[in-house]
């Protein structure tokens, strides 16, 4: 488990990056939402994925876990395609993506994180339960284990989702807006979690909205707005100029071309 606990090891060129994306283009209904994105995230990075609404941040994460069809491009995680490293990757979707009125307890939801390592027909065992409770303890919601999920606050829902990812004991974590609309104490708990994961040598990529805190939380930044603006260590990349490129002005030309392509599909 902790064989890869390497903080200060210089980047070994023979070891593939945690995430490498090459020439990725993705379209919904033929309208491109990501243009020709190429980037590399080194192992052990705590990376913020930043950009305005509709910049394709969530889409990029979904593409990494093979959830959206791509038009072109190649994605490698730890040097291999997603199919081969499923269990080393934990994806935390936006919490609105599920129905919180579902008849399940917090523990039930967290246990779902372990389903990936179970085969068909196999049931969760005591060991999985123990790990799920451990994950809940890390998120400081162990006392909610048997609570019905419809009774959770937004912050508690987010903690439940993060616990579900933790229980997978992955090497790469992809989190889609974990900080969205959570209370201050949950935000603090998530930050502590991120720091702890990084100190264990895990790679974490977080879709983030708040520019104020971005520089503080992340040591690596990916700036995205339909295309890649910049990706690299926060100190080098998180500059005024880059941010202006990311947020300043709509990329009208790309938008128009995208629109034209969409119309083209409807025409024929």
């Amino acid at each position: 488990m902790s064989t890869s606990s390497s903080e200060a090891t210089p980047a070994n060129s023979s070891r593939p990056a945690a995430l490498s994306v090459r020439d990725l283009t993705i379209a919904y209904h033929r309208k491109p939402v990501l243009w020709n994105v190429s980037l590399e995230v080194p192992r052990g990075a705590l990376a913020g994925l930043i950009g305005p609404n509709g910049a394709g941040k969530s889409t990029l994460l979904k593409a990494v876990v093979d959830m959206v069809p791509r038009i072109s491009g190649e994605i490698r995680i730890l040097g291999r395609p997603y199919r081969a490293v499923r269990r080393q990757v934990a994806y935390v979707p936006q919490r609105e993506s599920v129905d919180w009125d579902f008849p399940a307890t917090v523990l039930d939801v967290v246990l779902m994180g372990t389903y990936g390592e179970l085969g068909w027909f196999q049931r969760v065992r005591q060991e999985h339960r123990r790990r799920a409770l451990e994950a809940l303890r890390k998120m400081e919601i162990e006392h909610l284990a048997h609570r019905q999920i419809s009774q959770l606050s937004g912050g508690q829902q987010q903690r439940t989702f993060l616990a579900r990812a933790l229980v997978q004991q992955a090497d790469v974590y992809l989190m889609d807006e974990p900080f969205a609309a959570v209370d201050a104490s949950t935000e603090a708990a998530i930050v502590r979690l991120l720091m702890e994961l990084r100190s264990q040598g895990k790679t974490i990529i977080v879709v983030h909205h708040d520019l104020q805190t971005a520089a503080e939380y992340f040591d690596f930044v990916i700036l995205l707005n339909l295309r890649l603006i910049a990706a690299g260590p926060t100190k080098e990349v998180f500059t005024r100029e880059n941010l202006q490129k990311t947020y300043g002005g709509k990329l009208t030309l790309l938008d128009e071309i995208g629109e034209a392509m969409r119309r083209g599909e409807q025409g024929g």
Partner: peptide, 8 residues
Amino acid sequence: FDAQLARC
């Protein structure tokens, strides 16, 4: 509950 996770 979560078809996305199932697919992942």
